[in-house]
Simulated assay, not measured.
Amino acid sequence: MELDPRGQRFAATVTSVVLVVVLATGWGWLALAQAVIFAITAADPRRGPYAYVYRALLLPRLGPPAEREPVPPVRFAQLVGFSFMAVASVAYLSGMTTLGVVFAAFALLAAFLNAAFGLCLGCEAYLAIKRLSAKSA
């Protein structure tokens, strides 16, 4: 199973917008909602709400992708995003706003790099970990 990288960039774009709103407003519940979305997509990137929107609205207009990407790095990246947003949402909801801002900002940086430049930091970290573990084995 492989994924359309354009769908991942679309999801990163929507995520970036959501995270800008979280940072601008301090809405802990929105941070929690984004954490839940990351959790869903960490389990299966094809089942996330942004993936459904992409497939329903954009994919029919764009046509099939010229390339595909493997699922495991994307799942790992979503798990990292979930971790950051879980901390951010708990921090915002418990009044530790500065901690929430820091973790939401890290998540925004990663999402923005993917949306704007196609650079998935979590995917790159996954591949680096795989290479390091293969060398040590």
Rank of each mutant, 00 (worst) to 15 (best):
M1E: 04
E2V: 09
D4Q: 02
D4K: 02
D4C: 03
P5R: 06
Q8E: 15
R9F: 00
F10T: 04
A12P: 07
V14R: 08
V14P: 07
T15Q: 14
S16A: 08
S16W: 04
S16G: 14
S16L: 02
V18E: 02
V18G: 04
L19G: 10
L19W: 09
V21H: 03
V21G: 11
T25Q: 11
G28E: 11
G28R: 12
G28I: 06
L30A: 05
Q34H: 14
V36R: 05
I37M: 14
I40W: 07
T41V: 12
P45R: 13
R47M: 08
P49K: 04
P49G: 09
Y50E: 10
V53M: 10
Y54E: 01
Y54K: 03
A56P: 00
P60A: 07
G63T: 11
P65K: 04
A66Y: 05
P70L: 03
P70C: 00
P72T: 02
P72V: 03
P73T: 00
R75P: 05
F76H: 09
Q78H: 15
Q78V: 08
L79A: 15
V80M: 12
G81P: 13
F82E: 06
F84S: 11
F84T: 09
F84Y: 10
M85H: 08
V87H: 11
A88M: 12
A91G: 06
Y92G: 00
Y92N: 02
T98I: 07
G100Y: 11
V102H: 00
A105I: 08
A107P: 02
A107I: 00
A107Q: 09
L108R: 04
L109P: 01
A110K: 00
F112I: 10
F112H: 04
L113T: 03
L113R: 01
N114G: 07
C120H: 00
C120I: 04
C123H: 01
C123K: 01
C123T: 02
A125V: 15
Y126L: 04
L127E: 09
K130D: 14
A134T: 09
K135D: 14
K135E: 15
A137C: 06
